[in-house]
Structures are given as C-alpha cells and as structure tokens.
Simulated assay, not measured.
Amino acid sequence: MDRGLGRGINIGNALDALDGGPELPLHERYFDEVAGAGFDTVRLPVRWSAHAAATAPYTIDPAFLARVDAGVHAALSRGLNVVVNVHHYDELCAAPAAHAPRFLALWGQIAAHYAGYEARLGFELLNEPHGALTASRWNPLLAQALAVVRASNPDRTVIVGPADRNDVAALPALAVPDDGHLLATVHYYAPLDFTHQGASWVAGADAWLGRGWEDAGDENAVRDDLAGAAAWGRQHGLPLFIGEFGAHERAGMDSRARWTTFVRSEAERLGMSWAYWEFGTDFGAFDPERGSWREPLRRALLGDPERTA
C-alpha cells in the first residue's frame, strides 16, 4: 500500500456494530459491489475490544478473528486496499490508564497475525480517540502502539489521527512520530446539524430535521476546514486520509448528494484520499434490500454517469 488510498468506503456496522445499533452482514458480494463500482479502498472498522479477554494476555477470540480475516481476504482478493482499525474502544477512551495495556496487547496480536500479509493491508491505530483520552494522553499511547506494530510490521502503512474524535481542528495537537510509513486521518461531519439530523444517538437531533445544505456559506466552511487540514499535512509531510464522512439517511437526498459531492471534490482537489461512511446501513450509499447503489450518492462519490445496467 502506498500512502495514497484513493477513493474508499467503510464497511461499517459489520465488525464494529454496537448493541442495539444497525448491523450489516459481511457478505462477500458486497465487496464485489465495491470493487465493481470503482472504489480503491475498503476501511474495515473492527470492535476488537468486544471480542477479547478482559485479563492478560487479552486473547482475541479466534472465531471473531476468522470473521475479520474473511473481510480482509474478500477485499484483497478483489484488488482493493484494506484498512483494519480498532473501533469503538470506548472503555479505553473513558479510562486510558486502565485499558492501555489491553489496547497495546490487542495491537501486538493483530500486528503479528497480519505480518505476512501483502502491503495493500494497512493499520489504523484507533478510531476517534475522545473523552479522557485527550491529546496529552493519546499522543504517548499512539507512539507506544506504533512501536508495538513496528516490532512485527516495520514497513506497513499505519494511519494515525488526532484526539477529539479525529476532528480537523484537533490536528495541531497531534504529535506525529518520526516514521516514514505514516498517513494522517481526520473525520468530517460538518455541519453536524446537517449530517446527523435525526440520528437517534445524538441528543436533540430531531430538531435538526429538514436542515438543507446549499448556500455559499456552507460551501466556504468546507473549503476552509479542508484547506486547514491540507496545510497541516504539507507542514508535516504527511498525506491526509478522510477516513469518514457522510450524512445520515434522514437528511434530504438532494442535500446529501450535494454535500457528499462537494466534500469529495474538495478532498480530491487538495490531494486527500477518502473513505465514505458508510456502505449499507443508516448512512449507506448502497441499499442492501434492493441490492443496488443509491445512485445520487454513488454519483456523488464516483462522479460518473448513472448506470443503466
């Protein structure tokens, strides 16, 4: 894997689903859809912490590891890059000191398991550090986790992102280790009252229903946010990867498509790779029930004309 991941999509809510949340079966045919549509990369969010022992040596459940393997193999066998991360480790974010040894042990197992895999597999150390895992705590833990990975994977692409849920504005507080195989990630969901309108897990989100996205002020905000991220990347000599961006299904489709088109095109203009959130649940660009892409979103992401076949 070089450090430009091109155009990607998250297979979200398959290996990372939360109790009571949407869940996507990890069907192989979905990888056919992704590759056939023209994406370059699959990001596989994985909730390892829900499938590993609570005490040392924190062994990962072999049956769950086999499920992750199936997703990795499905992506690689179709010529896709694949990013495997640690997703939804909320206990680590709530109590960093207590969970840091387990987090490092998880990465020791993951890295050793995939050490022999081809270079198109990359690792992302942690999705959206937040809560008590502030920059002052996350930066040294990030460096420790990278050292654990490098013990078995000296040259593999590793993706690092800032605290405060990988927010663009948090990039200046990210301490970047001296390593020639890193890529920096941010997530982009601005403005939140548009992208998360009606989202059940966001307090007050129903009050945002009907919020459109269409004026020059909205566009200028995206330009400013992403230009700032790109400038930080140039300063640090790091490629930028927008690992998540998307708008919830309860937003109007016309506005969702406009926002998605604009964020995607600005990211590409600035030389950033990206992965849309997500494939087939509440932000999904693909409709599993109909077995087809939601054309306004597919065109927004890939920019090609509507298909007839």
Rank of each mutant, 00 (worst) to 15 (best):
M1R: 14
D2Q: 15
G6Y: 08
I9C: 07
I11C: 09
G12N: 13
L15N: 08
D16R: 06
G20T: 10
G21R: 13
H27L: 15
F31A: 09
D32W: 10
E33S: 10
A37E: 12
A37G: 04
G38C: 04
F39G: 05
D40P: 12
V42L: 12
R43G: 04
L44H: 12
L44E: 04
V46D: 04
V46E: 04
R47P: 05
W48Q: 08
A52F: 08
T55M: 10
A56R: 13
P57R: 05
P57N: 11
Y58H: 14
P62Q: 13
L65W: 11
A70G: 07
S77G: 14
N81M: 12
N85R: 05
N85D: 15
H88Y: 15
Y89I: 01
E91I: 00
C93V: 01
A97P: 02
R102I: 05
L106F: 06
A112P: 00
Y117I: 11
E118K: 06
F123C: 07
N127A: 11
E128D: 11
A132M: 11
A132G: 04
P140A: 12
A143R: 08
Q144E: 15
L146D: 08
V148S: 03
V149M: 03
R150P: 04
S152G: 00
N153M: 02
N153G: 00
D155H: 12
D155K: 11
T157A: 07
V160S: 01
P162D: 02
P162V: 05
D164Y: 02
D164T: 05
V168H: 08
V168N: 01
A169R: 13
A169T: 10
L174A: 02
P177I: 00
D179K: 05
H181K: 08
L183T: 10
T185Q: 10
V186Q: 03
Y189A: 11
A190P: 00
A190I: 01
T195L: 10
H196P: 06
A199S: 03
V202R: 07
V202H: 06
A207K: 11
L209C: 13
R211Q: 14
R211V: 08
W213G: 01
W213L: 01
D215I: 03
D215M: 02
D218K: 00
E219Y: 00
E219G: 00
E219K: 03
D224C: 00
D224N: 07
A227K: 07
A227W: 00
A227C: 03
A230F: 01
A231I: 06
A231M: 05
Q235A: 14
H236N: 14
G243D: 11
E244C: 09
A247L: 06
A247I: 04
A247H: 07
E249D: 12
R250Q: 15
A251D: 07
D254H: 01
S255T: 07
W274D: 05
A275V: 08
Y276I: 10
W277S: 03
E278V: 11
F279S: 02
T281F: 05
D282E: 15
D282L: 14
G284Q: 10
P288I: 07
R290Q: 14
S292F: 01
W293I: 01
E295M: 12
R299F: 02
L301V: 05
P305T: 15
R307P: 10
R307G: 15
